[in-house]
């Protein structure tokens, strides 16, 4: 198995190097799209923790991106540093996510979907109506981009590196988390909550944690979103963002570490490539998602996973057949 690890690590290094080097001569718009991909991937990773690993449906991830974005917009336009806004957004989303997790202790599946859906709509109403805080439908404009170690990131390329760097840090943290006992507890919760409980896992705490951590990642994505677009109004944080993020997780492969990366890439980049289909794009996307779900409910990575495990089984049974033939011919 260790020999198979090197090509994977090599591939990872090539991808990371490409993400750093290739965009250097991208234009403004290309960099914006790539930065958006990084931001949406962070949000989708959060949802993947809640949905893919812990098995708790949430239709509120878009609302947490919104909370993070407003925290960043309000604080940085009042002269506070972005890092302070990040701290506030993480704490705020963690706490609200924790509270939103409480219904999950009582109800499952669709009920949970509706509670989180209701929360999402309520958050949208607050963004839109609390003029004193969010400037309502006019939105907050001229959001400054941060200085990192005294280095300004006003231009698109440095800010892209901020987004990419944040994605890197979040990915490492999530990678560590899902390999820790916590990650295993999340999976146990998804696979069979009653068994998890009987094995002594505090399902109550882990359910709340799954919500809180997933929501906090949504908040991180939001704090990057605000300086990226430099303008925040309620429209992008409508329920449809939560649905989009859910689709990203599902299309990429929920419960797979790289699922959100792939899902966000498809959701953010595909509309650019499919410009020629004009308004039909979303319709085609919806049909493709349904087709994919029918074929493989665990998304694109699910297909890949199935393919690999089938090949392994075939290889194993071939080996067994050879071994059996040898045994039979042996005297």
């Amino acid at each position: 198995m260790t020999a198979a690890k090197y090509p994977k690590i090599g591939f990872g290094i090539v991808v990371i190097a490409a993400l750093i080097i290739v965009p250097m001569n991208f234009n403004r718009y290309g960099l914006f799209i790539l930065s958006q991909w990084a931001v949406m991937t962070i949000a989708a990773m959060g949802l993947n923790l809640t949905l893919g690993y812990a098995g708790q449906v949430s239709l509120a991830q878009g609302a947490f991106v919104g909370i993070g974005a407003y925290a960043a917009a309000i604080m940085t336009s009042n002269g506070l540093p972005l890092i302070a806004a990040l701290g506030v957004a993480i704490v705020l989303c963690f706490v609200i996510g924790w509270i939103l997790g409480y219904p999950a202790l009582r109800v499952q599946h669709h009920y949970l979907a509706f509670v989180t859906l209701a929360f999402s709509t309520l958050a949208f109403l607050v963004f839109r109506n609390e003029d004193w805080l969010t400037k309502g439908i006019y939105g907050i404009s001229n959001i400054p981009r941060p200085e990192i170690f005294g280095y300004p990131t006003r231009r698109p390329l440095p800010f892209y590196y901020v987004c990419l760097g944040s994605l890197g840090i979040v990915s490492l943290a999530v990678w560590w988390l899902i390999r820790s006992p916590w990650g295993r507890a999340f999976i146990a919760l998804r696979e069979n909550p009653v068994r998890a409980l009987s094995l002594g896992i505090d399902t109550r705490r882990y359910t709340l944690m799954a919500f809180a951590i997933g929501s906090a990642l949504g908040g991180i994505a939001g704090t990057l979103y605000a300086p990226l677009t430099q303008y925040v109004d309620p429209v992008p944080f409508h329920l449809s963002l939560s649905l989009d993020l859910l689709m990203m997780v599902i299309v990429g492969g929920s419960g797979f570490f790289f699922g959100p990366f792939l899902g966000a890439m498809i959701a953010v980049l595909l509309p650019e490539w499919l410009r020629f289909t004009q308004g039909y794009y979303l319709m085609l996307y919806a049909i493709a998602v349904i087709g994919l779900l029918i074929y493989s409910p665990t998304g694109i990575l699910g297909i890949l996973d199935r393919f690999i495990s089938e090949r392994r089984t075939k290889a194993a049974s071939a080996l067994r057949a050879v071994a059996k033939a040898k045994l039979e011919t042996a005297p």
């Binding site: 449906v57 599946h109 669709h110 979907a113 649905l243 859910l246 689709m247 599902i250 308004g279 039909y280 979303l282 319709m283 996307y285 919806a286 049909i287 998602v289 349904i290 779900l293 029918i294 409910p297």
Partner: peptide
């Protein structure tokens, strides 16, 4: 299962609307 089906109907909702 229930959940993938529910998510498929969400995709259907987007499709019909568009």
């Amino acid at each position: 299962g229930v959940l993938p089906l529910a998510i498929a109907t969400m995709a259907l909702a987007i499709g019909i609307k568009e």
